[in-house]
Each structure stands twice: as C-alpha cells, then as structure tokens.
C-alpha cells in the first residue's frame, strides 16, 4: 500500500473516517468483560464499603445507619493514630531508606564496579540483592521467625556464642524492639527492587555527560550528585511514590511477623481494619478505617498519574 500513496490518498481519507466512525462503536464490546469485572470486584465493593463505614454492623442481621459516628470515634482512638504513626516508620523502611541506599548502591555497581570488574560481576551482585523480592512475603516471615526465635534462633545463639549474652533480645516480642526489627526486615525485602529500577535507569544516561565531568576533574561523588541523581529524577519520583503506596498498604509482613503486636507496637492501618472486620467483627468501624486509607492512597494515585502524564508530554 505504500507503493502508491499519492493516488490512493483521497480515497483512503474518506474510508478512514468512515471506518473510524463505525469502529468506535465496534470497539465497545471489547470493554464489556473488563467493565463487568471492574463493576463487580472494584466499584460495587468500594461503594458498599464506604456505605458500611456509616453503619454499625456485626456482619449478621442488618447494618444500622449511624452517620459519621465511626469517623468521630476514629479521631479519638489512640490505636488508629498509632497505626498511622507506624505507617510513617514503614514508609521510612520501605520507601525512603531503600531509595537512598538503593540509589547509592546502584551507582556504585553501575559506575564503579562494572567498568572495573565487568558487567557480569555487577549483574550477579544485582541478582543477589534482588532475591528477597521474589520470596513470598509469608515465607520471608517464616524465615525471619526462624532466625530471630528468642531461645533457639540463629541471631541470639550466635550472640551468646560470641559471649554477647546481653545483646540477645526477644527481637519481635519486645515492644521497644519489634518495630525497628520489622523495619530492618522490610529494608532487606525492598532494596533489590530499587536497585534494579535505578540500574536500568542509569543505562539511559548519556555516557558523554560523565566523561565530560570526568575530564573536568569531578570526583565520583560529585558526578553521583550532579549527574546520576539529577538524571534519574523521573525514576526516583516513581519509585518513591510506588513504594510509599506499598508501605501504606503493608499487611502480610505485619500479619506474619507480629500480628500488630506486642500490644499495638507494630499495628498498621490495614491490619487494624482487618482486625476490626474479622476478629472483633466491628464491620462498620473497620470499613471506616479502610475508607480513610483508600482516600489517602487514591490521592497518591492521582499524583502518580499526573506525574506520568507530565512525563509523557516531555517524552
């Protein structure tokens, strides 16, 4: 068809518009399965959950409409505030630390190790850092439970063997230590993800930028700050936002490692909602907690969408 573009052009144009107009309607059936699924699995449940948040319900019988009482109760509930305060700690462990440390490690791997010891060395190390990402979170929980078991676990028995009995702790069972311990496990879990994203981002940086800076006598650290961090801004923004979303949603590691305890030491909003739904069966209250979380996350999604739209325009 490219052989006679000129002669066929007028004809093509009319056909195109006609086809387009017909095909617009023709494409609607393809939306149907997705639309029905979305309606049943996302839209209806989300609206139902928001409505439940205005009721008092134990899961049996009929919900009683109580207006905004659940939300008023939330404002005065220490556990609710504690769960969001812990979310901040989880964001540090899952978003901020892995982004900072990951950025540095990937720059070292990509810019320092690979040119000196070969790309294969760098990719092998990258794969090692990535491994925790592929382990199911529940399995990671069993793994760390085994390592941190207070009496027979490896961490404590190694400390005792080294004569450091005083440092052997009940890592997940001590209210003061549980949250920091969970945070360390989460950093271990997340680091590989940020390294892989950042390293692939670095491959797109124009090498001549670094070469020019090198000729100008810039040190490795200067080039890291001025070129790498600067050029990777889009990746950093996306990684920070997506990992923050993941941190706010975190459930499985908490459920498996501590069940929010001891006391409320490691409670997070999603676990608090789950607990109200299925343990104390205060369904309306659980719905209110999850609605607050949903609003917060939707706001973040909007920011992400806006960022990506802006990216598209630049590209």
């Amino acid at each position: 068809m490219t052989s006679q573009p000129v002669t066929s052009e007028p004809l093509t144009r009319t056909t195109t518009t006609a086809t387009r107009r017909r095909s617009r309607g023709g494409y609607l059936p393809y939306l149907l399965p997705g639309a029905i699924g979305f309606l049943l699995v996302v839209a209806v449940p989300a609206v139902a959950n928001a409505w439940l948040s205005l009721t008092s319900w134990s899961g049996v019988g009929d919900p009683t409409f109580i207006g905004l009482d659940n939300y008023v109760r939330l404002l005065g509930d220490d556990t609710f505030w504690k769960s969001f305060a812990n979310s901040v700690a989880i964001i540090i462990a899952m978003a901020i630390l892995p982004t900072g440390v990951g950025l540095f490690l990937s720059a070292v791997l990509f810019d320092f190790i690979a040119p000196r010891f070969g790309g294969r060395t760098a990719t092998t190390l990258r794969a090692m850092f990535y491994l925790p990402q592929i382990i199911p979170i529940a399995v990671a929980g069993v793994l760390w439970g085994f390592l941190l078991q207070p009496q027979t676990g490896i961490v404590n028995s190694s400390l005792r063997a080294a004569g450091l009995d005083g440092l052997a702790q009940n890592w997940l069972g001590d209210p003061a230590l549980a949250l920091p311990t969970v945070m360390i496990i989460l950093v271990w879990l997340q680091l590989g993800y940020t390294i892989v994203i950042f390293m692939s981002g670095m491959a797109r940086i124009d090498p001549s930028l670094n070469e020019a800076a090198d000729l100008d006598g810039a040190s490795w650290l200067q080039r890291f700050w001025v070129i790498t961090v600067n050029e990777l801004r889009p990746e950093i923004a996306v990684v920070l936002l997506t990992t923050t979303v993941a941190a706010l949603k975190v459930f499985a590691p908490i459920y498996v490692l501590t069940s929010g305890g001891p006391g409320n030491a490691t409670i997070v909003p999603s676990y608090f909602a789950f607990y109200n739904f299925f343990t104390t069966t205060q369904v309306g209250y659980g719905a209110a907690i999850s609605t607050v979380l949903a609003v917060l996350l939707t706001a973040l999604a909007v920011v992400l969408l806006w960022l990506q739209k802006r990216e598209d325009k630049h590209a």
Binding site: L31, A48, N49
Partner: peptide
C-alpha cells in the same frame, strides 16, 4: 487502538483500582 471516548478517564479509573487497598474491598467481596 479503538481510542474510545474518555480513554484517559477510563485509564485513571483503572489506576485508582490498583492503588485501592484490598481492605477497602474485602468485606463486601
């Protein structure tokens, strides 16, 4: 490919769908 009307709106809805916490859907489900 069909470029149906309001594509961006549809996409935005899908984006929100995978950011929503599962806790906000689970009880009705």
């Amino acid at each position: 490919i069909g470029r149906i009307r309001g594509s961006f709106g549809v996409l935005a809805v899908f984006m929100v769908a995978f950011t929503l916490p599962q806790e906000a859907l689970i009880y009705p489900l």
